[in-house]
């Protein structure tokens, strides 16, 4: 697995709070047995309703690899299809005020870092990127910072998540398998798996 210590690239600004995963990828695209092709449907209904006036249709943001969002991004359904769709449309990291927990867990499992900024820092970053979308934005996991032409600000990344990304241990299956027989040993002392020994 790849260690991830920094993501640098152009950014796309998507304003608004409480953007749910039904909006990120409408449920009709979950009628599939693979994640293939989800990228082209990210925010499809929002984009249609915005009639072209959506950040995902703004040419100035084309090719962005960081997505800058508001508060409680990714709330609602647990569908991993949401971060999969964003990943498949080119995003490799998320910067926002806060993230819904299941969405954040899914991002970690895919090796997609997310970082939280104070509301004022976030607003300044959004304004700076909208003004000058060509500038590179850097999320530095080692330093816990986000840098742009607006300056460098502190970013919150949960310790466990940061360590998993820095160590390249974000695919949990391998890490969990390392417990070996301790898994069976645990199951052997859970009462409901053992006919509730007195």
């Amino acid at each position: 697995m790849t260690a991830i210590d920094r993501i640098e690239g152009r950014a796309c600004v998507l304003r608004g709070n409480d953007i749910d995963t039904d909006r990120i990828i409408p449920a009709r695209y979950l009628r599939a047995i693979t994640f293939d092709g989800l990228g082209e449907h990210a925010f499809e209904d929002d984009r249609i309703q915005a009639k072209g006036d959506h950040p995902f249709d703004d040419e100035r943001f084309a090719g962005a690899s960081l997505l800058i969002v508001g508060a409680n991004f990714g709330c609602g359904s647990s569908r991993e299809h949401a971060p999969q769709a964003l990943m498949r449309s080119g995003f490799r990291a998320f910067i926002g005020e806060s993230f819904a927990e299941i969405f954040a867990g899914n991002c970690t499992a895919l090796g997609l870092p997310y970082a939280m900024l104070d509301a004022d820092d976030l607003a300044a970053l959004m304004d700076a990127v909208v003004l000058d979308p060509e500038q590179p934005v850097l999320l530095d996991l080692e330093a816990r910072t986000v840098s742009s032409r607006a300056g460098t600000v502190a970013a919150k990344i949960p310790d466990g998540v940061r360590r998993q990304l820095l160590e390249g241990s974000w695919n949990a299956t391998r890490v969990l398998l390392d417990a070996g027989e301790a898994i069976e040993a645990t199951s052997a002392r859970i009462p409901y798996l053992n006919d509730f020994p007195g």
Binding site: N106, N171, A172
Partner: peptide, 10 residues
């Protein structure tokens, strides 16, 4: 806990 597909794999 509600989980995503990679965690279903886990």
């Amino acid at each position: 806990f509600g989980i995503g597909t990679s965690q279903v794999r886990d």
